[in-house]
């Protein structure tokens, strides 16, 4: 082991720098740091304003800065922020679980079995899903009324979960199917000889292997409700049922309730866990994204 690099010896694999390259490298660094500033400045504003006690209803730059938690306090005490958080988490967890339940079956079936309409059905649904359905959203109301007539206690939140999970079936099936396709079918055969039935092959062999992909699918379905503003704003009527996105929007959409710093504070609290999650899992998340379209 060489612990000390000997001076004067050129140890790098790379060719030495020419003056031109040095300039180019410097420009690269300048550009990179400039963009770092472009990204961090607005985000920093969110953080700063959320702690700025000297602002009341509107966010202003400049002026006096007074560190305080009063906007957070406002969120928790004056607004049902905690309720929004719980609503969102409940919906997100339910969505993730329901999605996994649907998709793990369909993904396995689509990958391992040849049956009629296999290719066409998935493709058709994925294409049809690109149609925006503002107009048809009235159908959701009616559908909800019919289902809740049949099943009492079927709340709007449950319906929202069903919409999230149902809407993701096609694309998630597509992603999971692609992943299972890459597992050799000889494994299935071996498991069958070792004594597994149809379902056991999936539960004991395939599922543990595809667990990373299932985790990614679950994660995406979990994050979805945190990011979506539109559907909850349409489906959920009662502010008590609001999710974070719809709830926070009430803080800035009309002048009566306007409280921009509180919005910043709430945004910060919402964004923080998600950002940490993204940074920790960036590799897996990106690979999940890419495999959906590139590998398929």
């Amino acid at each position: 082991m060489i612990k000390q690099k000997k001076k004067g010896l050129y140890l790098s694999d790379r060719p030495p720098l020419t003056p031109l390259k040095t300039i180019l490298l410097a420009i690269s660094y300048i550009l990179l740091f400039a963009y770092v500033f472009v990204i961090l400045w607005p985000l920093a504003q969110i953080v700063l304003s959320s702690f700025n006690g000297s602002q009341s209803q509107y966010i202003r730059i400049g002026g006096t800065y007074q560190f305080s938690f009063k906007h957070f306090k406002f969120l928790f005490e004056e607004k049902p922020f905690l309720k929004w958080v719980i609503n969102t988490i409940v919906i997100a967890v339910a969505t993730a679980l329901l999605t996994l339940l649907f998709v793990s079956f369909t993904g396995y079936a689509y990958s391992r079995y040849r049956f009629k309409g296999r290719k066409a059905s998935l493709m058709a649904i994925m294409l049809i899903q690109t149609i925006p359905t503002f107009v048809g959203i009235a159908a959701f109301y009616t559908l909800h009324s019919i289902i809740s007539a049949a099943i009492p206690g079927f709340s709007r939140q449950m319906f929202l979960v069903l919409i999230y999970a149902g809407g993701g079936i096609a694309s998630n099936t597509f992603i999971l199917k692609g992943y299972i396709d890459s597992i050799s079918t000889e494994l299935d055969d071996a498991a069958r000889i070792d004594g597994c039935g149809n379902f056991q092959v999936y539960r004991l062999i395939i599922m543990p292997i595809v667990r990373p992909m299932l985790a990614i699918i679950a994660l995406w379905s979990f994050i979805g409700p945190f990011l979506d503003y539109m559907l909850p704003s349409i489906i959920l009527g009662d502010p008590e049922q609001y999710t974070l996105a719809t709830g926070l929007y009430t803080l800035i959409n009309d002048s009566r309730n306007m409280h921009q710093p509180a919005f910043a504070a709430g945004g910060l609290l919402t964004a923080l866990p998600i950002v940490i999650l993204f940074i920790a899992l960036q590799k897996q998340l990106v690979s999940g994204l890419a495999s959906g379209a590139v590998k398929g």
Partner: peptide
């Protein structure tokens, strides 16, 4: 599974997990 056979596959088919 009840045939009392053992099989070795081309890709070995070892369970990776």
């Amino acid at each position: 599974k009840d045939r009392d056979i053992a099989m070795v596959f081309q890709s070995y088919a070892l369970y990776p997990h």
